[in-house]
Amino acid sequence: MASPILLNIGGRTYATTVDTLTHREPDSMLAAMFSGRHTVPKDPDTGMVFIDRDGKHFRHVLNWLRDGVLPLLHDSQYQELLREAEYYQLIGLVDYINENMKKPDDEEPELTRRDIIKCIQSERLRFRGVNLSQLNLSKLDLSFVDFTFACLKNTVFSHANLQKAKFGDVEAVGSNFEDANLRECEFLGANLSGSTLDRASLQSANLQDASLVDCSFCKADLRSAHLQSANLAGANLTGANLEGANLKVLLFLFLEIQLKLFILLYCKVSH
């Protein structure tokens, strides 16, 4: 068996081996210290190697070096351990922490797809103000569901039946509504910026005051849709059916495009 090495990390005592300190992270500062290439000073009385760092989280450092895993930690603990990992130049541990540490803007959904299906089966179909961001709700029957004020960022509704569902004032940036049935849906004041609605059926849908910036409506059915005051800047309407749709905002966009073309032509002529 390998002889133990005694470490004094900021006043806390740990026992380990050279193999543990050098095997998993061979390019780290710890591996360099105990590789045998350097003389490491030891306390003449105790034989301990002293390292002037906070020893609180060094047990996690050793567990990482032994097993390559960590227990679930709070974000503040991850932050403290990250500083120690960076000091010891444990690149693998740094990457592990960054992958597992919750980012400040991460938004976890309050329900799972399974929860949603159970709600549908039990006819409890109100999700007002609920965070359902990043869930995959494709191909579900969510007709008549009330999503008002819900957080639906990057949520997938492709091929779902959402007829007459309510999306008033939802935050649905980057969501996917491809091939979804959105007939007669209410999106009053909703933020759908960057969302994909290709081939979606939006016949008679209410999109008044909605933010549709950079949305894609390729081959979407927008017949008789209400688009008053909707922001369609940068939206892609290629192949969309706009028969009977409110044309005020579309006329504005047409004039805006004509104005940009005029400015470009004027600039070329003037030069």
Results as ranks from 00 to 15, higher is better:
Ser3Gly: 09
Pro4Asp: 09
Ile5Asp: 01
Ile9Val: 14
Tyr14Arg: 01
Tyr14Thr: 08
Thr17Glu: 07
Thr17His: 02
Val18Asp: 04
Val18Gln: 04
Asp19Ala: 12
Asp19Val: 14
Thr20Leu: 02
Leu21Thr: 15
Asp27Val: 09
Leu30Gly: 03
Leu30Glu: 02
Ala31Pro: 02
Met33Glu: 05
Phe34Lys: 03
Phe34Pro: 03
Ser35Phe: 05
Arg37Thr: 15
His38Ser: 12
Pro41Arg: 06
Lys42Asn: 02
Pro44Ile: 00
Asp45Pro: 01
Gly47Pro: 09
Met48Phe: 15
Met48Trp: 01
Val49Cys: 06
Val49Trp: 01
Ile51Ser: 03
Asp52His: 15
Asp52Met: 00
Lys56Trp: 11
His60Asn: 13
Asn63Cys: 14
Leu65Cys: 00
Arg66Met: 05
Leu70Arg: 06
Leu72Asn: 11
Leu72Ser: 14
Leu73Asn: 08
Leu73Pro: 12
Leu73His: 12
Gln77Glu: 15
Leu82Tyr: 13
Tyr87Cys: 08
Tyr88Val: 00
Ile91Leu: 10
Val94Phe: 01
Val94Pro: 04
Asp95Cys: 06
Tyr96Ala: 04
Lys103Thr: 14
Lys103Leu: 10
Pro104Gly: 02
Glu110Thr: 01
Leu111Trp: 10
Lys118Ala: 13
Cys119Glu: 06
Ile120Thr: 12
Ser122Trp: 04
Glu123Gln: 15
Arg126Gln: 14
Arg126Cys: 11
Phe127Gly: 01
Gly129Thr: 06
Gly129Pro: 08
Val130Gly: 03
Leu132Tyr: 04
Ser133Tyr: 05
Ser133Met: 08
Leu135Ile: 14
Asn136Met: 00
Leu142Ile: 07
Phe144Pro: 04
Thr148Ala: 06
Thr148Gln: 07
Ala150Lys: 11
Leu152Asp: 07
Val156Ile: 15
Ala160Leu: 14
Asn161Thr: 10
Leu162Asp: 10
Leu162Tyr: 09
Leu162Trp: 08
Phe167Pro: 02
Ala172Arg: 00
Ser175Met: 00
Asn181Phe: 03
Arg183Lys: 12
Glu184Gln: 15
Glu184Leu: 07
Cys185Asp: 04
Phe187Pro: 09
Gly189Gln: 10
Asn191Leu: 04
Leu192Asp: 04
Leu192Ala: 12
Ser193Ile: 00
Gly194Asp: 03
Ser195Tyr: 08
Leu202Arg: 10
Ala205Glu: 00
Asp209His: 14
Ala210His: 05
Asp214Thr: 08
Cys215Phe: 09
Ser216Lys: 06
Phe217Gly: 02
Ala220Pro: 06
Ala220Phe: 03
Asp221Val: 13
Asp221Tyr: 12
Arg223Cys: 09
Arg223Thr: 05
Gln228Asp: 09
Ala230Glu: 00
Gly234Asn: 07
Leu237Asn: 06
Asn241Cys: 07
Leu242Ser: 04
Leu242Tyr: 08
Leu247Pro: 08
Lys248Val: 14
Leu250Cys: 08
Leu253Val: 14
Phe254Gly: 14
Leu255Asp: 13
Lys260Trp: 10
Ile263Ala: 06
Leu264Ser: 10
Leu265Val: 15
